[in-house]
């Protein structure tokens, strides 16, 4: 009897200890990545039973400005059985899906059912415990709503989490001498002829990045380095969206109408495939 009482007392304490530690690390979460493609907000996660699923990755800085990603995972139980909610900390360069089976978990607790909610500043985790008692935990993510595109630097304070050992860090990309002319540039976001953009890695550029105009409304390929658009031998400068969509097309072709870009006076626009270069 005494053991049962101790167990019952210990269970909620373990749960709180874990989630308070998670909250301590997640105060500074500035982006949510790897969101599960199929699960919908507020809907119970029931399938696939007896599997381990990565729900999302929470990205934040540590005290020494190392960057971490906490992957929130769920062991989906077989009907009537007990599952587990857990966290695996990894590098931002790894996807949550690829690390979620790792045995190195940073806390876990049992749950018979689970659904989650996410808005601009809160992550809500709704679950029922082994005794079918419904519980809700809300994690405050105050740095998340301050990192929107229109407020690039609108936030003034970022919260730094305690550092962790053994998490691989991304290296800063590029040298100050890198230039379009030297062809030593690192591509930090690709863009194909159909205007499909690749993953945005330009935040790793050590000396900023610049975009090369290819006529796509959603932007062209981006490279780490100092912007020298408009100069001889360098990409042309963007004139703006109004000039991009003048002919009401999704994409303008440099070879047909280069009016969406400009070069320094006296230079002409040369088309290198779909890319506009000044000559």
């Amino acid at each position: 009897m005494k053991r049962v009482l101790l167990f019952l007392l210990f269970l909620p304490m373990t749960l709180l200890a874990n989630t308070d530690e998670w909250q301590k690390r997640w105060w500074g979460v500035h982006s949510i990545v790897d969101l599960h493609k199929h699960y919908k907000l507020n809907e119970p996660i029931l399938e696939p039973a007896d599997s381990v699923q990565a729900l999302m990755g929470l990205v934040y800085y540590g005290e020494s400005f190392k960057i971490y990603k906490d992957c929130l995972g769920y062991e989906v139980p077989v009907n009537g059985d007990v599952g587990k909610i857990f966290v695996v900390t990894t590098s931002v360069k790894e996807t949550c899906e690829s690390v979620i089976m790792s045995e190195k978990r940073d806390g876990e607790f049992k749950a018979k059912s689970l659904s989650f909610n996410l808005n601009s500043h809160t992550l809500g985790v709704m679950f029922s415990d082994e005794k079918f008692r419904s519980k809700e935990i809300f994690f405050n993510l105050p740095n998340l709503d301050r990192q929107k595109a229109e407020s690039y630097y609108a936030r003034s304070v970022i919260i730094l989490a305690p550092d962790k050992e053994g998490i691989k860090q991304p290296h800063p990309i590029g040298k100050i001498s890198d230039s379009w002319n030297t062809k030593k540039l690192k591509n930090c976001q690709t863009a194909d002829e159909e205007c499909n953009l690749g993953t945005f890695n330009c935040n790793d550029c050590r000396f900023g990045y610049f975009e090369v105009q290819n006529g796509c409304l959603n932007g062209g390929p981006k490279y780490c380095g100092i912007d020298q658009c408009g100069e001889k031998g360098f990409p042309a400068c963007a004139r703006g969206q109004l000039y991009q969509t003048g002919s009401a097309q999704k994409k303008m072709d440099c070879r047909v109408d280069p009016s969406f870009v400009f070069c320094k006076k006296g230079l002409r626009i040369r088309c290198q495939g779909s890319l506009a270069i000044c000559d």
């Binding site: 800085y61 400005f65 960057i67 931002v92 991304p170 290296h171 800063p172 050590r206």
Partner: peptide, 13 residues
């Protein structure tokens, strides 16, 4: 950022 050896860090903090 230039005094750090990691990418993705803020430029000045």
């Amino acid at each position: 950022r230039s005094s750090l050896k990691t990418g993705s860090a803020p430029d000045w903090v």
